[in-house]
Structures are given as C-alpha cells and as structure tokens.
Design a binder for these strands. Structure first.
Lengths: 306, 306
DNA sequence: TGGTTCTCAAGGAGATTCCTATGCTTTCAC
DNA sequence: GTGAAAGCATAGGAATCTCCTTGAGAACCA
C-alpha cells in the first residue's frame, strides 16, 4: 500500500541522489530509507533508482513521478496545517446552539465577541426551534447550547445554570400594569406564548402552570407562536398579553410594542438560562470559548447564578 | 505521523457516519478503523468525531478537514496511476543512447517505431559525443545504448553485438574507386575521420591502425571531425577521403557528396554495432523495447550477428 | 423491557519499521 | 596499483504498529 512515508523517502533520495544523505536529512538510518524505496518500487511496480556503485541515480520514471509525489506530500502537509489552523481557531466553523429568548440576551453580540477574538472563523448559531436544538444535542450534531430551562436536570445531559431572569407580565393595557400580576389575574388573562426553551415543554409555561396550579386555576393560552418577537408584536397590537423574562421584555418592547409595559409577577418567578451538553463530554476549545462568551453576555443582562 | 491510511479511514467513516460501516467498506475489523481515527485525532490534535451512543457524528473540524483529506488521497491515487501509466508505456520518458554513425541506421525511424507503438511517451535519443554516452552509461544516467564498437568487451559493461557492416573507402576521385583500397593506399591517402563510436578510441581508426600495422605503415588522418555528415561533405568537396561503414556511406553520399563513391577495403574489414548496458543490470521494459526496435532497425540495413 | 446495533477496551498474533553491524562495490588519492 | 573512503545491500534483532477476536457497555427501537 502506498504511503506518505515512502514518498517522503523517495523525494529526499531524489533530491540528494543518495540514500545516505536522504537518511540523514530524514533522521533515519540508511537501511531504513533503502527499505522504504524498495517498498515503494514494489508497490508501484516500477524502478525508481539505478543503484550504481557509489550513490543512486533516478530513472526517467522517477523524474515523471516526482511532481506527483510532491503534490501528494504538499496536500498532506496542507491537511496538517488546516487542522492546526482550526485548532488555533484561526479558521473553521464554530457551531453553537442558542434557542429562543436566549438569543435576545447573547445573539448578535455573541457573534461579534467571537469574531473579535477569532476573525477567521465561521460562526453558526443554530436554534430555530427548541426540539431541533434538543435533538441536535442528543444526536451529537451540536456540541453545546445555551438554553432556557424549566428545570435543571435532563437525562444524559449536563445542564449548568448560569443566570436567571425574573418573569414579567407584558400588556398594552396600562390598567393591567398598575400592580404585580397574581395567579388569579394570569388565569383570567388571554395570553400569547412563544416557544422559547430547550425542552418540548416551554419553561415559562411550566412555571405558570405551577403557579396557577397552587391556586386551582388553569392558564389560558390563547395564541401560540414561535418567536418572542411575534408575541411581543401581538401584545403591542392589544390582541393578548404575555409573560417573558425581563431582559427579553426590556429589549423587545421599545422596538416592537412601544405602547406596552410590564410588571412583576406575584409571587415573583424566575426563568433559568443554562449551558447544556452531553453528559461526560470533553468540550472542544471552540465550545469552551462559546460557553465562556455566551455566559458573560447573558450574565451582563440577567442575574448570575452561583 | 500523518498517514494516508488514517485519511482513508477518516473519509470512509465520515461518509458512513459509522466506524463499523467504514470498516466493512475498507475490509477491516471495526476496532482497527477506530484505532486509526484515534491516531489521526492524536496526530492532528483535534477531535474529528463525537462518539454518540450508536454511531459517530463528524465535528465541524471534520467538515473542514474533509476536502483536504480528499485532495490528499486523490493526489496519492494520481501518483499511483501515473506510475501505472508509465509502466504500461502510456506516458513517461524513454531515454536511449545512440552514438555517431549508429543513428544513421536507426535514428528517426527508431523514434517513429517507438511512437507508433506508444504514442504517449517522450523519447530522448542521447549521444552527441561518444565519451558522453560512455560516461552516462557508467554513471547510470543512461540505461542502455546502441553503439559502434572496436572490440566486444568493456569492463563493467555488457556488450551484445547485433550487427556488422563492411567498411568502405569513400572518395570523390573516380580513379581511387576503380579497385579495392589496400593498406598501402590507405597509408598514403589523406583521410577525414569522424568520431563515431562508444569508446574514446574510434573503432574505424582502430581497425585501420591494425590493418596498416601489419604492413608496417601508419595511417594519415588529416582531418578530425565529430559528425560523419561533415566528413562526407569534406569528401564531396574533394578535400580528403574517408572510411565509413557501408550503410552510412550509402545513406550519406547521395545527399552530401553526390559526386563521390566508395569501394571495399582489401582485405575486407567490419565495424560492429552492439547494445551496451551495465553488467548485471535488470533492464526496464522501456529499455528492452528500445533494444528490440533498434536492433531490428540496424539489422535491416547491416548484417545481423549471431 | 429485551433485543439489536453500535463503540470501546483488552490481549495476542503477525507484519512492519528501524536500528546496528557487516560485506561488497566503486571511487579517489597517493 | 593499492589502500582508504564512500555508499548501498544484507542480516539479525528489538520495538512498534496493525489488525484481529472477544467481551463489555451504551443507546436505540419495538
């Protein structure tokens, strides 16, 4: 079987016109190079050097093959260098999951942070849909992700909470903002809920359900949408109210629903943001970088945990 | 150290998303492929696959490296194919030595013969100068040659005579062509002698010296030139006479000295043509081809030996 | 939950690689 | 010519690598 080692020996021998000199350059003993050349001649079925007393002389076959050998070695070297560049994050792709509302805390800014440190890399921030992120993580297509979670455990996954943010009630009706939203008021409200978290069950919904369950009531979700942006727009149009983490509300309201405002819940509730990856996985430098930067971003807006 | 084997395993695994499937394609057991991948990851210092329960999933690093690996494998394959093409004489260079008068017997026609059989090859017919050919053979730069020889032995060389041709006396003076040239007449003639053979000592000269030595006379070489063509032209101008193998004379006289003619020597003398190569060498198919074709060509004009 | 399909780990056989030492041929200098 | 030097081939042995088989553990699917 053809090997790079043989080609390396071939080129060194060709250039020096001597097995001994080639061996010296490669740091081997002369018989080793001799053996490699013989092996190469055998695998290719051609004679590459004429053994002529003192030294060896390349045949015309060797002349013909040399450029090919050089190209092959160069390609291999390029492969090695590409790996090195990727390892140093000078190039390559960094893929990171970030679902729903989390990207409002650390979306474009996070990408900017990465590019500032590593201008050559490609960044992929995936997460259109919560189940997709979850599936990607489970299947290994995604190494790590920043997500909002309903609870801090998940089988087969390491979930590391990094921040929490208070949930707030959002409405375009000023009357509903005069006092904190209680369970009773939430039960009567008609709500638009975005799908913002990692598990199929949205964390905000779980929290609300728990809150209302204690009062014996059920939440009335009138509208379900995917993006928090759409939910906020609908709130702005007065078609429904909503519940979102405060940071998201502060970011979206001025832009999408300037006539709306928000108040705390009573009792106050928190949504948690966490880093998630497969249990026991050794994280790549790229993933560690993303985790570090995403955590910094989100902790600048929401309240750090631990 | 990076190896083609590792890259082959990498690509097969990447394409199948499975070590087992890759192993099956490559005809190995699965742990072997696993080991190769692990080795590649170690030499490159990057993680290429995420081991995820059932199967493996390529990382973004693997995505980046794949085209490089493919190029490297393709280059190696191209090297292998190039060797194969050379071996089949579909391409490559065939170098063959052919000195002096020999090329008049098998020069352009020989090249035509080679190209008719192997249209893709490059042909190099070397031999400006006899000492050069000899040196090239000795040094291994030339595998084999067709030469005129003064005697059939040469140290370190295998010399295989293939044909002989009668030496003839050439002159532009019709009076000197009325009867065979004797040693006495040769001794008195003023001759132009080309340098036509393999050893530093020209075979024709040696023959003449031997011939005249028996009569106690010495040859008078008036002019020395390299090419037989120039010698014949000088004969045509009447400036000197010459001695050449008959086939060469028949070929050159009509073209370069139409007013000249030739007669035999008395006693008749022969110049020998032989294949020469290093003793004990295993000849390449290309060299064997050249020897075969050159022999056929020369035997069509001169008298076959053995 | 049980069966199937994976990967990983360990151990051993065989091949390869690489070394040192030595012999043989060619080349070079005196 | 003859001896010394240079350079390749060969031989033998140690270390490494490659590859296999077997068995264990994990994850998926019904």
């Amino acid at each position: 079987m053809l090997s790079l080692h043989q080609l390396r020996c071939f080129l060194a021998t060709y250039e020096h016109g001597s097995l001994t000199a080639a061996a010296e350059e490669l740091g081997y003993a002369q018989p080793s190079v001799s053996e490699q050349i013989r092996g190469l001649e055998k695998t290719l079925g051609v004679s590459l050097f004429r053994r002529v007393g003192r030294g060896v002389v390349p045949t015309t076959v060797a002349d013909t093959l040399r450029p090919h050998a050089e190209r092959t070695i160069a390609a291999a070297e390029e492969t090695r260098l590409a790996a090195q560049r990727v390892r140093r994050l000078e190039t390559g792709t960094i893929r990171f999951g970030m679902f729903g509302v989390a990207r409002l805390y650390a979306g474009a800014g996070l990408v900017a942070d990465v590019l500032a440190r590593h201008p050559g890399v490609r960044v992929e921030l995936v997460g259109q849909n919560s189940t997709e992120v979850q599936e990607d993580l489970r299947r290994g297509r995604l190494e790590a992700a920043m997500v909002a979670i309903p609870n801090v455990t998940s089988e087969g996954m390491d979930v590391i909470p990094v921040a929490r943010d208070e949930l707030v009630y959002i409405s375009a009706d000023p009357e509903r903002l005069t006092s904190p939203a209680t369970a009773a008021r939430l039960a009567k409200a008609s709500l638009v809920m975005p799908d913002t978290t990692y598990r199929a069950d949205d964390s905000v919904r779980i929290i609300l359900r728990r809150m209302l369950h204690e009062t014996g009531l059920n939440p009335q979700t009138r509208i379900e949408v995917e993006d928090p942006e759409i939910a906020v727009e609908l709130v702005g149009m007065g078609l429904a109210d909503s519940v979102l983490p405060r940071g998201a509300a502060e970011q979206l309201l001025p832009r999408l629903a300037p006539n709306a405002g928000f108040v705390s819940l009573r009792p106050r509730q928190w949504d948690y943001f966490a880093i998630v990856h497969r249990s026991g996985a050794t994280l790549s430098p790229a993933a560690q970088l993303m985790i570090e930067l995403a955590t910094a971003r989100i902790q600048a807006i929401a309240e750090p945990v631990r």
